[in-house]
Nucleic acid binder design. Structure first.
Lengths: 181, 181
DNA sequence: TGGACCTTTCAGAAGATACTGAAATGGTAG
DNA sequence: CTACCATTTCAGTATCTTCTGAAAGGTCCA
């Protein structure tokens, strides 16, 4: 089994996927579980995960739950079997959409709201110090508006890409990509 | 100073930028320093950073160096002044390009290479087990090719977006974005 | 050459994050 | 209701990351 190339590929991918996740603020184990399920030909149960990745029951449970919350993994019940099985989303475009949507909600939204708040504060400040001092309020404000414009543009780009994926327009995305060169 | 709205905005933004960074695998302090410099009307020196963010000299030095390595911050020398000053890249499109280019090089490239390697291994495995057992090699291989296609498409999209920014075609990016709705 | 001034480095400390193992909880069938 | 099986929770622990403070390293000028 150790020198079976298919098995080698499987283990290599799982390891690398976990390593990469670390630099993206995702725990190594969670990513490894995701990779394991992504490659699995059929749903796995908690004990399969524990055994294959050598993690504790607690860790497996917690991470599977989190993956489920992200919407990247589904819980499956089987008749005459109390165990729960888990299956990964295998459409990479769908995965992309899920990840972007969730990260936007959890991590981008707060900064967008902060920018809006900052712009309000800058307006307040501008009124307060009108005709006073050498402070360049315009330049200060510009830093905020530019970030806002950027996030709006990015928002749109991601919508476009995910729409392209959803409609099965993968070739279109490629086409778009080629345009850029 | 505490109730000056401009100052409030500045502190709020720095705080939030640092918090957000944590979920993206970037250290809080490094992000705060970046935000501080991004909003600063003129270059700051190490002591300014230490004072304003209440961090040690070692931390300031290390993080400034890292930001410089990323290309997000520039080191500036002044005549008749031994101190070094630091200034942030303020063009957000440029920032985006830098961040994507660096993360791609450091974090996406390894997974791409792994995928290629996996595909080679799968071909080896296919030969080895030809006409044997019930293992569905095709399905297994498909998981890898789909990720490869996806990364290629993404690559192209990012090239397009960064080109749009580079050419000053920000309105185009917005237009593209609107298309998606 | 020596001293003033700054930056970098790094060992140890602090802090954050994730994991373990076991107890508590939940749910199902007899 | 009880026994059984599986999942969840959580306090304690391990591990990894980042920070601190001080010493070492550079550089410039008198």
């Amino acid at each position: 089994m150790r020198e079976n190339p298919l098995e080698q590929a499987r283990l290599l991918f799982i390891r690398r996927w976990g390593e990469m996740a670390a630099s993206w603020g995702i725990s190594r184990t969670m990513a490894e579980i995701h990779a394991l399920l992504y490659l699995a030909p059929e749903p796995l149960c908690t004990d399969d995960v524990m055994e294959q990745l050598e993690v504790s029951r607690g860790s497996a449970s917690t991470n599977l739950r989190q993956l489920e919350n992200w919407g990247l993994v589904f819980r499956i019940h089987r008749r005459n079997d109390r165990k729960e099985y888990f299956e990964a989303e295998t459409d990479v475009w769908q995965m992309f959409e899920i990840i972007i949507r969730e990260r936007r909600r959890r991590e981008v939204q707060p900064i967008v709201e902060t920018i809006e708040r900052c712009l309000v504060l800058v307006e307040d400040g501008r009124r307060e110090i009108s005709g006073e001092g050498p402070i360049d309020v315009d330049a200060f404000q510009k830093r905020f508006t530019e970030i806002r414009e950027f996030t709006e543009a990015m928002n749109g780009v991601f919508n476009l890409v995910s729409k392209a994926g959803r409609l099965g327009l993968k070739p279109l995305a490629k086409q778009l990509a080629r345009l850029a060169r």
